[in-house]
C-alpha cells in the first residue's frame, strides 16, 4: 500500500510537485499519467527515498519514507527511467550485487542465487545471464532493471516509464509481466503513453504541472468527463433534418450534427447521464423511415481526456474533436 499526502517538492523557486495526494491499495496497479515534466519522476523519487520532499508525507507498505527510510526501501522495488546497470558486470553478477544490497542479511548465498535465477526466469533474461550489461539491447537493459527491482520480492513496485524505448513485442510482454505482478505487489507506474494506462492500470492519477488533475479508474474517467451518455447516430439522406426531431425525445439533451455526406448524415446525441436512450432513438428513426445506418456509444478515448485535463483552459489550444467542455 502507498499513501501520499500533500506532497510538495520545490527546487529553489521552482515547484516540481505541488500538494499531491493519492493512495494505491495493496495489489493494485496505479498509473501515473502526465506529460513530460509534470512531476512524475520527482514524485517517484520521493516515494523511493531518493530525495526528500519539501513538505508532506509519504508511506510505503506502512513505513514512513522520511522517518524510517531503510524499512521503506526494503519494501520497495524501483526501476528508474534509465535502468541503473553497471556496464562492466554481467547480468548475473549485477543481480547478485543488488541481491546482496537488498536482501536481508539472513538470506544465505544459496537462497540468493535461487532468487537471482527466479527473477531472471520471470523477466526472461536467463539467456543473457553471462552477458555484460554494456552489451545488452535496450529491451534487455529494461528487463534487467525490472529484475533488479524484483529481486527482494518487494511489496511495492515503482516503475518509471517501464516500457519506454521497447519494441512493440517487448511492450506487450512487459505489460503482461506487470499485470501478472499485481495482486501480490502494489505497482505504481508512470507513463505518458495513454493506451498503456487503459491496458495495464486499474486506477489512474493524472498529473500536470506538479498537480493532481484527476484520480479514477480509466472507465470512470471516461464516463465522468463526458458527463452524459453520448451516442453516435448515422442515418441515410432521408433523415437530413433529423436533428430537431431527435432533440425532442425525452432524455436527450442536445443533438449536434457531426458529419454530412450525400448519402448519409451523422449526429452526436447527448443524453442525460445514466439514461439509456438507445431504444427510443432507434424506434424514432425507424418509425420516420430514415434508415438507420449506424448507432454506437461515443466514448472519449483516454487520449482525449488527457488532452482535456492537461490543456490550459485559458490557453488557445483547441479542444480535441468530438469532445465537449469538461463536465466537472
Amino acid at each position: 500500500m502507498i499513501e501520499v499526502q500533500h506532497l510538495t517538492k520545490r527546487y529553489g523557486p521552482f515547484t516540481a510537485v505541488d500538494d499531491v495526494s493519492f493512495r494505491a491499495e495493496t495489489g493494485e496497479i496505479l498509473g501515473f499519467l502526465g506529460p513530460n515534466g509534470a512531476g512524475k519522476t520527482t514524485t517517484m523519487r520521493v516515494l523511493t527515498g531518493y530525495m526528500p520532499a519539501t513538505e508532506g508525507s509519504a508511506t510505503v507498505a506502512g513505513h514512513d519514507v522520511f522517518a524510517d527510510p531503510i524499512a521503506a526501501k526494503r519494501s520497495t522495488g524501483y526501476l528508474p527511467e534509465t535502468p541503473p546497470l553497471y556496464p562492466d558486470m554481467t547480468v548475473r553478477e549485477y543481480l547478485t550485487f543488488v541481491g546482496k544490497l537488498k536482501l536481508p542479511a539472513s538470506v544465505g548465498k544459496a537462497e540468493r542465487t535461487s532468487r537471482v535465477d527466479a527473477v531472471m526466469a520471470k523477466t526472461h533474461i536467463a539467456d543473457m545471464a553471462n552477458r555484460h550489461c554494456s552489451k545488452l539491447s535496450k529491451g534487455y537493459r529494461q528487463r534487467v532493471g525490472l529484475a533488479q527491482a524484483l529481486i527482494h520480492d518487494p511489496e511495492v513496485l515503482i516503475l518509471d516509464e517501464p516500457t519506454a524505448g521497447l519494441d512493440p513485442k517487448q511492450i506487450i510482454e512487459t505489460r503482461a509481466l506487470i499485470r501478472s505482478l499485481a495482486g501480490s505487489h502494489t505497482v505504481v507506474l508512470s507513463t505518458h503513453i495513454l493506451p498503456e494506462v487503459s491496458q495495464t492500470c486499474q486506477r489512474v492519477v493524472i498529473i500536470n504541472k506538479g498537480r493532481v488533475v484527476a484520480v479514477d479508474t480509466p472507465d470512470n474517467l471516461t464516463r465522468q468527463l463526458k458527463g452524459s451518455a453520448t451516442l453516435y447516430v448515422q442515418v441515410d439522406a432521408a433523415g437530413a433534418d433529423a436533428a430537431p426531431v431527435l432533440s425532442g425525445l425525452d432524455g436527450v439533451r442536445r443533438v449536434v450534427e457531426l458529419d454530412r455526406h450525400e448519402q448519409m448524415v451523422g449526429f452526436e446525441v447527448a443524453a442525460d447521464a445514466d439514461r439509456d436512450v438507445r431504444r427510443d432513438v432507434a424506434r424514432l428513426v425507424v418509425d420516420r423511415g430514415w434508415g438507420l445506418l449506424e448507432m454506437r456509444p461515443l466514448r472519449l478515448s483516454l487520449e482525449d481526456i488527457f488532452l482535456q485535463l492537461t490543456t490550459d483552459e485559458s490557453g488557445n489550444n483547441a479542444p480535441p474533436p468530438e469532445s465537449e467542455q469538461p463536465h466537472a
Partner: peptide, 11 residues
C-alpha cells in the same frame, strides 16, 4: 550513469 539511484534507493 544513474546507478547512484540504485544505491540511494537500496536499504
Amino acid at each position: 550513469s544513474g546507478t547512484i539511484e540504485l544505491l540511494l534507493t537500496s536499504p
